[in-house]
Simulated assay, not measured.
Amino acid sequence: MTRRLPVIHGVTEHDAGPYRFEQLDLEFANGERRLYQRMHGRGHGAVVVVPMLDAETVLLVREYAAGVHRYELGLVKGRIDAGETAIEAANRELQEEAGYAARSLTQLRALTLAPTYMSHQTQLIIARDLYPQSLPGDEPEPLDVVPWKIDSLHELMLREDFSEGRSIAALFIAREWLRTQA
């Protein structure tokens, strides 16, 4: 069933650091009116990278996560800088965070965090044919690089220090995509 999008009668904006908050005055097809809020990021999007060291091994990084005040395992990820494509950003972040570059990068799809109130999208990139190559990053300390067998994702999912939703979703999507490529 295709629904007509709500009519936007007005938008009120205010700035909040790295985000712009909007309040939308919406009217739905059934005549109901509601105020919705949404956040827009100020950047050019983000990437999450699934770096495949070989056909069976993904590289994870362990870094400090201020939101939960602990060290977290996850995938390489970061912002897309102005003038960069998602592929270029993925290769740069891979070099900054994991100390590798990739000869083959494939953009699979966009992931959203909370699409009911955030416009932010993260591009999922698979990096293959890796080789050692480092760039200085913005992290205050070197990140631990942890190889993990992609067939052991069931063990990774149960770890307390692996909780970031984009990393979890990206690994399962990548695993299924890689199976179709074999």
Rank of each mutant, 00 (worst) to 15 (best):
Q181G: 08
A46S: 10
Y36L: 15
A16H: 12
E88A: 14
A82R: 13
H14E: 11
P18K: 12
M1A: 12
Q95I: 12
R33K: 14
P142I: 11
L75T: 02
K77H: 02
E155L: 15
P6W: 08
E141D: 05
T122H: 03
V47M: 02
R34T: 11
D161I: 01
G78N: 09
D81A: 15
R70M: 11
R20W: 07
A86G: 12
E13D: 15
R79A: 10
I168Y: 00
I8Y: 06
L135G: 04
A101K: 08
E160F: 07
E88Y: 07
L105C: 13
G17Q: 14
Y19K: 12
G45L: 10
L60F: 04
M157F: 13
Y100R: 08
A66S: 13
P147D: 05
I126C: 07
A86M: 05
V68P: 02
A110N: 13
R38V: 01
L171V: 04
M52D: 00
V48R: 00
Q181E: 11
T57K: 04
F162C: 05
Q123M: 14
E139T: 10
A114Q: 02
R79D: 11
H9Q: 12
Y117M: 14
A66L: 08
H40R: 11
L124N: 00
G10E: 09
L35M: 14
L124W: 02
S152H: 15
R42G: 11
T2M: 11
L94D: 02
A174N: 01
T12E: 14
L111H: 01
R175S: 03
W177T: 08
D25Y: 12
T112P: 00
V50Q: 08
E176D: 15
E97I: 09
H40G: 00
S152P: 00
L59N: 01
Y64R: 07
D144F: 05
A182Q: 14
L94F: 06
R3A: 11
L35G: 07
R128P: 00
A86N: 09
G41R: 03
Y19Q: 14
A46K: 04
Y131S: 10
M52H: 05
E27Y: 06
V61Q: 07
F28W: 14
L35W: 10
G74F: 00
L60Y: 03
Y117L: 15
V7A: 11
Y36H: 13
W148K: 01
L59G: 00
S152I: 01
E27D: 04
S104A: 13
E63S: 05
A29P: 00
E93I: 04
A16E: 15
P140W: 07
D151V: 09
D129E: 15
G17C: 08
I125D: 06
V48C: 04
G10P: 01
E155H: 15
P136L: 14
S167P: 01
A114V: 06
I80H: 04
E13R: 08
E22P: 00
L75W: 05
H69T: 13
M39Y: 03
Y71S: 05
